[in-house]
Design a protein around this nucleic acid. Structure first.
Length: 382
DNA sequence: GAACTACCTAGA
DNA sequence: CTAGGTAGTT
């Protein structure tokens, strides 16, 4: 348990802790998590309250890592239907989708457009640091002797104020500053900012959670109404926060994968990601992997990342590229989660968007534990 | 509709 | 010039 907790923490080992310690780029994890390590029994029986907290923590972890999903079985199915996947399955085991907070994930992915992972990570950290009060400080495991202060992810109302735009600009958010402020304002205007839920969440956040109970097409239509949210960003949120496991966000990586391994047209050069191409890539991958296509895509997405180019390959000679350890350290910096010895880590995806409102869908059919840091998630999966 | 183009910024 | 796109115009 403790091992897992600190792992979760490392995922968000930034000066802030986001409610789900994620953000774009955090979606996978390693295969050992399913078997939660047994914590040695304390010599003296733990007080009831401590046991309760531990039980709560376990519930949270099972939800966040979606441990009810039998990943090994899925790998078998994907491998039987797709020889390409079969080829990667052993090197990239245990990659599973995280169930991230909708509001936090939405804003994080708005930051992702036309951007790179390391900058996105810094932007999200800044968002927490500048728009949300510190929650607690803990020893920084990355820098012994230092202390790390954590901030939760800000509420919608904190980002809805008109002054936020300029502030974000000054923080280097570029044109995304406007998208974030306007999207936050849209939510607050539509769903209000009070009363707060028991978990200290605003009504608009809770409303976003309810999209988990809405079908994919309808939920996507809602997400596309926000500024800065196109097809790709919407699909990422659907897959990583709305339980829409069949959705395959098509970004540059995914497109390249489709071209390289699945014979999709896409001239070697930089092909513009048109809505048509998005749908083609999407349809192809969905037909290949089926109902959990979104989960399968993240495995190949991970395999496609540069830092993993040599991952899992015979550690023979002095490998010029990063060793698994280095690769994972890098990943951690990027806000991704990885377990030690055996693999993993991965992340989400970019691409074009059909005109807003169209919403047509030709596509698939498609802390450390002591001090509890993250705010509790509310609605469990249906 | 399909096809351009502008958009912030940090890093190679 | 690219990196985990989107909005606005032709």
């Amino acid at each position: 348990m403790w091992t897992v907790l600190s792992l979760v923490n490392i995922a968000g080992s930034f000066p802030q802790i986001t409610r789900s310690s994620g953000g774009p780029a955090t979606r996978i994890i390693c295969g050992r998590i399913p078997t939660l390590p047994q914590r040695p029994r304390d010599p003296q029986p733990a007080p009831p309250e401590a046991l309760l907290r531990e039980a709560e923590t376990l519930v949270w972890l099972e939800d966040y890592f979606q441990l009810d999903v039998d990943l090994e079985e899925l790998y078998k199915q994907w491998s039987s239907k797709d020889v390409v996947f079969a080829k990667f399955q052993d090197r990239f085991k245990g990659i599973r989708m995280l169930r991230q907070d909708p509001w936090e994930n939405l804003i994080s992915f708005i930051c992702s457009s036309n951007n790179n992972i390391s900058r996105i990570t810094k932007m999200v950290q800044n968002l927490c640091k500048h728009f949300s009060p510190p929650l607690l400080s803990l020893p920084d495991h990355c820098n012994p002797g230092e202390v790390c202060t954590y901030h939760p992810f800000p509420n919608p109302s904190a980002l809805a104020e008109s002054t936020v735009n300029a502030t974000l600009r000054s923080l280097g958010f570029g044109y995304r500053a406007d998208y974030i402020q306007r999207t936050a304002k849209m939510l607050v205007d539509t769903h209000g900012l009070s009363p707060l839920s028991p978990e200290n969440r605003e009504p608009s956040e809770v409303w976003l959670d309810t999209l988990r109970q809405v079908d994919t097409v309808a939920a996507r239509e809602e997400l596309l109404k926000f500024v800065g949210v196109g097809r790709k960003v919407a699909d990422c949120v659907l897959l990583m926060s709305m339980d829409k496991k069949e959705v395959v966000p098509v970004d540059t990586h995914v497109h390249q994968i489709a071209v390289k391994h699945y014979g999709l047209k896409g001239s070697s050069g930089k092909t513009a990601m048109t809505p048509k191409l998005y749908d083609d890539v999407n349809a192809k991958l969905y037909s290949l992997w089926g109902d959990y296509a979104g989960w399968a895509h993240s495995v190949l997405f991970t395999a496609d990342l540069k830092i993993f180019s040599n991952y899992g390959l015979a550690e023979t000679a002095p490998t010029p590229s990063p060793s698994p350890t280095k690769a994972m350290a890098k990943l951690t910096l990027d806000g991704q989660v990885v377990d030690s010895p055996s693999p993993l880590g991965a992340t989400p995806s970019p691409s074009p968007s059909p005109r807003k409102r169209k919403a047509k869908d030709s596509t698939l059919n498609s802390t450390q534990s002591p001090p509890r840091v993250t705010r509790r998630r509310t609605n469990p999966r249906p």
